[in-house]
Computed example of a mutant assay.
Amino acid sequence: MSRTVGEHTADPCPRCFVHAVRPGEPTAVGGCDVVGYLCDRCAHAWTRPVEDDLDVYDIVRVDLTDATLYGTVWQMDADRVLVRGTSGEWLRWVERWRVIVY
């Protein structure tokens, strides 16, 4: 489970369990699209799969460089997702690799 740090979300490192804001990088491992992370404290690297089974109305978390947003999938393209804010106050297209089903 993640915790909120200001406008960012901090997830713990699976090795040292230190919470920190970590930007992910899209990459591929074994032909699968994944997001790679690196812990600044212990140098552990890990990945998570890019969500490929998103549906309209899924509740999601969007990890941006400068903020973490929570909302609902409103529309999808092959490489991007339109996310609507929880109260409908915003709509934003984001890259699919930034979206995590919440």
Score class of each variant (00 low, 15 high):
Arg22His: 04
Tyr57Phe: 08
Asp66Pro: 00
Thr47Glu: 11
Asp63Gln: 06
Arg96Met: 10
Arg80Lys: 15
Ala45Asp: 02
Ala43Arg: 15
Asp33Thr: 04
Glu89Gly: 08
Ile100Asp: 13
Gly24Cys: 04
Ala67Ile: 04
Ser2Glu: 06
Pro12Lys: 07
Arg98Tyr: 01
Ala10Gln: 12
Glu89Tyr: 00
Asp55Tyr: 06
Gly36Asp: 01
Gly24Gln: 03
Ser2Asp: 03
Gly88Glu: 07
Ala10Gly: 09
His8Trp: 13
Pro23Ile: 15
Ala28Lys: 14
Glu25Ser: 10
Arg84Leu: 06
Ile100Lys: 11
Thr4Phe: 14
Thr65Val: 09
Ala20Tyr: 11
Gly71Tyr: 04
Tyr102Met: 02
Leu69Lys: 07
Cys16Lys: 07
Val29Leu: 15
Pro26Trp: 12
Val81Lys: 09
Glu51Asp: 12
Val83Ile: 09
Val99Arg: 01
Pro14Phe: 05
Cys32Phe: 09
Leu64His: 05
Tyr102Pro: 00
Thr27Ala: 15
Val101Tyr: 00
Ser87Cys: 09
Val35His: 05
Val34Leu: 07
Cys39Thr: 05
Arg98Asn: 00
Met1Lys: 07
Gly31Asp: 06
Pro49Ile: 05
Ala45Gln: 14
Cys39Tyr: 10
Leu91Trp: 05
His8Leu: 15
Trp97Ala: 01
Ala20Trp: 08
Val35Cys: 01
Glu7Asn: 14
Val34Gly: 02
Val35Gly: 06
Leu38Ile: 08
Asp11Asn: 11
Gly85Ala: 07
Ala45Cys: 13
Ala78Lys: 14
Gly36Ser: 14
Gly6Lys: 11
Val21Cys: 02
Arg96Ser: 08
Val18Gly: 00
Asp79Met: 03
Tyr37Gly: 00
Val34Pro: 04
Arg80Pro: 11
Leu64Glu: 14
Gly24Met: 03
Val56Met: 06
Met1Asp: 09
Glu89Gln: 10
Gly88Met: 10
Ala43Gly: 00
Trp90Thr: 08
Gly31Trp: 07
Val83Arg: 01
Asp77Pro: 01
Val21Ile: 13
Tyr102Ser: 13
Pro14Glu: 09
